[in-house]
Simulated scan of single mutants.
Amino acid sequence: MLAAMLESDGQRFQYEIPTCPGDGSPWTVGYPGCIEKSMAIFPLIMRYKFADVCKAAFCINSWHQNRSAQSCIVSLNTALISAEAFGENPITTYEDFKTFYRELDKLNLVSFREDYVIPVLGHTKLCFKGRWWPALHGCGMVHEYSRLCFANSICQEAGKSDEFESLLSYVASMTTLLEGAGWDGEEVGDIALHMPTASHWGNTARWFEESPYAQLPSDVLEVLSNKDKPVENAHFVKRADTTYPLFNPSILIDYLGFCCELLDTKALTGAVDSHLAFNADSFYTSNILDR
């Protein structure tokens, strides 16, 4: 970590910048500029209570109109996982939230590199252990959904089926309480940050109150809050022995990637091949022999 000092209202605050192990460069793979933007955001978020600003960030980042502003999502999450000091200002009401958002909007500018993202949050389904679960995934450019379809065999081979199922349950609760983040299939307009509605703020607040993330296994939380990973792979942040969620649509694919890392090439190839063979056999049986 690179330590930096920022000043605000005459006070100095510690800020730890995630760095790439080995060469000291900012630790991001696909979001150039997000580290610098996170530093610009820090003087704003340090005025507020940590739990409240986490809730506000989750509300903004999960809102369907903001899903294409991916660098903004990563920058805000980076600020939360890197800052060491926070204030006492609350974000309790929707008016408090709007005040925070308006100031953030001036600092967290959209990158010209952004691409349109279909803001699915439970709108697609994933079959795992014989049950269809609401899915959460991000940009289709890296074929996240098709890779997630192999989760059943890969997680079983890695001995992590129960852990992955706990994440699916977590996503399902998020989908239900956030009501799909307000997206009903319509085309989203320009790529920009948009003010979430009062209902989405209320849904986010209720979801934080129920805190289903507290039910996740500790080893899952550890994997998904690993500071040795790029900042875009952060999903949880811990402060004062309490864990808070960060909205990040790659949560399922990142954990599946961890499961893949547990397997050698032969075992991983075997898991994928067995999945393909099973589905090919099922297709042949149901569509050829039954005719």
Rank of each mutant, 00 (worst) to 15 (best):
A135W: 00
F128E: 12
L252I: 10
L224Y: 04
G87P: 05
I35K: 03
T204R: 01
S225M: 06
F97V: 05
L252G: 02
D219T: 10
L2G: 03
L80A: 00
Y116A: 07
E163F: 14
G22T: 09
F236N: 01
K106W: 00
V223T: 07
Y15D: 00
L246E: 00
L268F: 10
D96I: 14
V53K: 02
K55V: 01
V142K: 15
S166C: 12
R206S: 14
S199L: 12
S62C: 10
I118N: 05
S153F: 05
F112V: 15
L121Q: 09
P134H: 09
T242R: 15
G257N: 14
I253M: 14
F150S: 06
C127G: 09
Q65I: 04
M39N: 11
L262I: 09
K49S: 06
A79W: 11
K37Q: 09
A69E: 00
G140N: 11
P18F: 01
K229Y: 12
E232A: 03
R239K: 13
G24W: 04
Y101L: 07
I91W: 04
F283R: 07
F247M: 05
E179A: 14
G140E: 09
M39D: 02
E103F: 03
Q156F: 03
P217N: 04
W207Q: 01
G180M: 06
D23L: 11
I253Q: 05
E144W: 00
L252R: 11
P119R: 11
L252Y: 05
R131G: 06
